[in-house]
Design a protein around this nucleic acid. Sequence first.
DNA 1: CAGAATCCAACGGGATACTG
DNA 2: CAGTATCCCGTTGGATTCTG
Lengths: 116, 116
Amino acid sequence: METKIEPVKECSQTILAIHDVMDLLNGKWKVSIIACLCYSKMRYSELLREVKGISGRMLSRELKELEMNQLITRAVLNTQPVTVEYEITEYGSTLKNLTTTIAEWGISHRKKIIAK
Amino acid sequence: METKIEPVKECSQTILAIHDVMDLLNGKWKVSIIACLCYSKMRYSELLREVKGISGRMLSRELKELEMNQLITRAVLNTQPVTVEYEITEYGSTLKNLTTTIAEWGISHRKKIIAK
DNA sequence: CAGAATCCAACGGGATACTG
DNA sequence: CAGTATCCCGTTGGATTCTG
């Protein structure tokens, strides 16, 4: 029953899959945010500090999109003043391997990247 | 000599590394193109077919950037009419693990992603 | 504290037509 | 075949101000 695997088809499937992921994790910040939250649940202000360079406006927007895609959850805590805690979902945490791979490549090639 | 690893610092380094990589691979198409070229060297027109949905204009631009960052090479062949072959560099091929990881996640979660 | 609102510049990216 | 040139729009993303 198994048909011989066509190399081109296999490549094609790969490209489509990558395209899906790049769509889900589009923009400049989502991978960083997910990596952060894979590391530990965090409050809005903590993320603002950890994800260097992001503005409040972008952080809000990215978090909203990630929540919509069920990669993270948002919990408003009964504190005064109010605090909000973001946490990775089980689904989102399946991305940990991916973020780690990216980070490791980045660390290995930091010198070369910066040298560009 | 080993200092105790500070969790926050470690996270911070990770985020910076991810940011570097996302900068290098910015946009919608670069990862797909690299994945394609990790698979096999290809001509411009082949890439245009393999990377579904990309326009000629974007393909040119992305290829140029990837070449500038020394991730791929561009070779003009002495044919009539002229053909151009793009090939991954040794440096670029160190990204293979990364593209594979992304593709695998995409394949595993295709149903869920589409369901969004 | 955690955002929403507003404004604005820059870039990404598609369509089309053109070139050597 | 492998691009370039032009046009144009939507999105990204920063700065700043405002709110419960």
